[in-house]
Nucleic acid binder design. Structure first.
Length: 324
DNA sequence: TTGTGTTTTATTGCCTCC
DNA sequence: GGAGGCAATAAAACACAA
């Protein structure tokens, strides 16, 4: 590792005198240590009224005192920076010391009050705790960093929870969509089957297979009391188309989903008018304005809160979902 | 006891503000 | 330009399982 700077050299200003473990020489690598400070109190701070005298963090020994029974700072200050003490100190590889529990508690309370540190408060805390102002500043800095990390974790949890809810909601909607899609498909098939059966029975009795279906027959097939409203049912429109009849007899529903491009006789716009694309599946289906199928009602009323599908709705709106 | 992971204390360099 | 904040990082101290 690169040479480390000196403890409390920065804010302490007037001369760095410390270092990491095992240092044997005085190095000044910290720019804060190198520059002079306008706050001499930050340097070799000695508290006259410390409630925590004896705890000097990295400069203290096990019990907060060096071999002579005085703290390093007391020694250093009071003994006029004697070379003996100085050498003694630097030849004695000091360990980094943690703050005592009561000091930490005091700092925590102070942090709760205000997580920023005004210079005056820093000095006061240093006095009260018998620590270097620089230590107080560092402690607050690290404490803010920890607080920020915790906040980020909390924010992450909140976002995660929010995401999970949205995801679950989305998955429910997808499921519902698939369900509705298959219901639409089933109902389409059911409708086709009814049409096919009706068409087959009618053609076997009175009409030849080649005869086009009558509007009334389709209306009956759709089991609707209002025949006039089925005038734009797609199947009727194609009843003159031999291919349609053929498909109908074979029970092929594909005509519902594709336009007969081969039929030049049909007006394309007119034809499109009689079809619509389902909102869910995108299938092309014939327009049915007034057919009443309970299953479709259920589908309509449950279709993602689409408006206008209540039981009391006007008859014309019963298939608002279907009609365009 | 030792290896390993975590926490705490401290440094360094960069940035912003006054 | 100096003071102070912050992010990144080092390294000591600590916790704990094997």
């Amino acid at each position: 590792m690169a040479a480390r700077g000196f403890l409390y050299g920065g804010d302490s200003g007037g001369g760095a005198v410390g270092g990491g473990s095992g240092f044997n020489s005085v190095l000044v690598t910290n720019k804060r240590a190198a520059c002079s400070s306008s706050k001499p109190l930050d340097s070799f701070f000695v508290s006259g009224s410390s409630h925590f005298a004896g705890s000097r963090s990295m400069f203290s020994f096990e019990d907060g005192r060096n071999g002579s029974g005085r703290t390093f700072f007391q020694t250093y200050d009071q003994e006029d920076n004697g070379d003996d003490e100085y050498d003694d100190y630097f030849n004695h590889p000091e360990k980094k010391r943690r703050l005592k529990a009561d000091q930490v508690q005091f700092l925590e309370k102070s942090f709760e009050t205000e997580n920023k540190l005004e210079p005056d408060r820093k000095i006061q805390l240093a006095k009260d705790l018998g620590l270097q102002p620089r230590q107080i500043a560092i402690w607050f800095q690290n404490r803010r960093a920890r607080w920020k990390t915790k906040q980020l974790e909390k924010d992450y949890d909140v976002l995660q929870e929010s995401y999970n809810k949205l995801k679950a909601n989305y998955e429910n909607l997808v499921q519902e969509k698939e369900k509705l899609k298959s219901e639409v498909h089933d109902l389409s098939d059911k409708l086709l089957l009814q049409e096919t059966e009706k068409g087959a029975s009618d053609s076997s009795s009175t009409k030849s297979p080649s005869e086009p279906l009558q509007q009334e027959q389709v209306a009956d097939c759709l089991n609707d009391e209002d025949v006039s409203k089925t005038s734009n049912v797609g199947v009727k429109s194609d009843s003159s188309n031999p291919r349609y009849v053929d498909l109908l007899e074979r029970g092929d529903s594909s005509y519902l989903f594709e336009q007969d491009q081969s039929d030049e006789s049909l007006d394309e716009e007119d034809n499109l008018e009689k079809m619509f694309v389902t909102p869910v599946s995108g299938y092309m289906l014939p327009k049915i304005e007034s057919c009443h199928y309970p299953e479709l009602d259920a589908v309509n009323s449950s279709y993602l809160g689409f408006p206008g599908h209540g039981d009391d709705e006007d008859e014309d709106q019963h298939f608002g979902f279907w009609s365009y």
